[in-house]
Amino acid sequence: MAELTSTLTCPICDHAETEQMPTDACQWFYECKGCGEMLKPLAGDCCVFCSYGTVACPPIQDGDKCCA
């Protein structure tokens, strides 16, 4: 069973916020609650949780392709 919460950390201001991950879609954008920066996945990552989170998104945790 995949973990459904992840703490996103902004690379601009280092603000960290724990969020619930969607299980039915990728999350490509996230607005930092600290500085307002709009975060997008890094090259090679499928979503903001895979790029900035403490836990990868549920499909990746389960060994599947994200948004496949």
Rank of each mutant, 00 (worst) to 15 (best):
C26N: 14
C57V: 10
P41N: 08
D45T: 01
A68Q: 08
C50L: 00
Q27W: 12
C57Y: 05
W28N: 13
I12S: 14
C32F: 13
H15T: 13
A2W: 09
D62R: 13
V55R: 07
T5G: 04
D14N: 09
C10W: 08
C66W: 03
D64I: 03
P58K: 01
L39I: 08
L8Y: 04
M38D: 01
D62H: 02
G34Y: 01
T18L: 05
C67M: 07
E31N: 09
E37F: 04
D64A: 09
T9Y: 02
C66D: 09
V55D: 03
E19F: 06
V55I: 14
Q61D: 07
T5N: 14
D45S: 01
G36A: 08
T5C: 04
Q20S: 10
Q27F: 05
C47S: 05
M38E: 13
G34V: 01
S6A: 07
T54M: 09
G34I: 00
T18H: 05
T18Q: 15
C57S: 06
A43L: 07
V55S: 09
S6D: 08
D62C: 07
W28M: 06
D24S: 09
G53K: 05
M1G: 14
L39S: 14
M38L: 11
F49Y: 15
I12C: 03
P22S: 02
E37W: 06
T7I: 04
D62N: 08
C50P: 11
Q20L: 15
Y30L: 13
L4F: 11
L8R: 05
Q20Y: 13
A25E: 14
G63P: 00
M21W: 09
Y52P: 08
T18G: 04
D24E: 14
C66L: 07
P22R: 05
L8N: 01
D45W: 00
C32Q: 02
H15N: 09
I60D: 04
T18V: 13
E17G: 01
C32N: 08
P59V: 06
C26I: 14
L39R: 09
C47D: 03
M38R: 13
D24Y: 04
G63E: 03
L8M: 14
A16G: 10
